[in-house]
Amino acid sequence: MRLTRRVLLQTTGLGVLGTLGGALDAQQHFFDPEEPTADEVIAEFADGQVIEDRDVTLVLQSFVEDGYRVPVEIHAPGAREIMLVAPANPSKKVLSVRFGRHSAVSHVVTRMRLAADQEVVALARMDNGSVVRATQKVSVLVGGCG
């Protein structure tokens, strides 16, 4: 076979694709089997209490383009402590907040990372010790690992 431009392009084209595949592999994230599951994280926070769906509001867009920077707001009047869980992130627990006596309303606004489509969970421990929950389903276009 003569080495024509066409043959050359076909063969090197395959080579380039192969290299790209390798590069994509290298982008993979580290998976830690020691990392607790979302259920474990939630159970630890609940500490044996029955979790009820009330009294806490989770404000989060249902469709997110950029998973690296997602505005999130948790409003839990009367909560002593709250926790935010992202079950499809490599690290399930995103943050936990303890409110002190000078915190007027148990309300916090921040920005989180979302790795993939998932149902984000906000948990709150109220003054009387009960544990409540709010959830929000989110679609993520470009995942930001966290």
């Binding site: 992202a86 995103v94 943050l95 920005r111 989180m112 966290g146």
Partner: peptide
């Protein structure tokens, strides 16, 4: 964040918090 030595808000951050961590919260003193 504390006011005169008493906690307003105490946040434990994990890797799921976006870069340049930002918080907005309410206080009454």
């Amino acid at each position: 964040c504390s006011f005169e030595g008493e906690t307003v808000i105490d946040v434990a951050l994990e890797p799921g918090v976006a870069s340049h961590p930002f918080f907005a919260f309410e206080a009454r003193v």
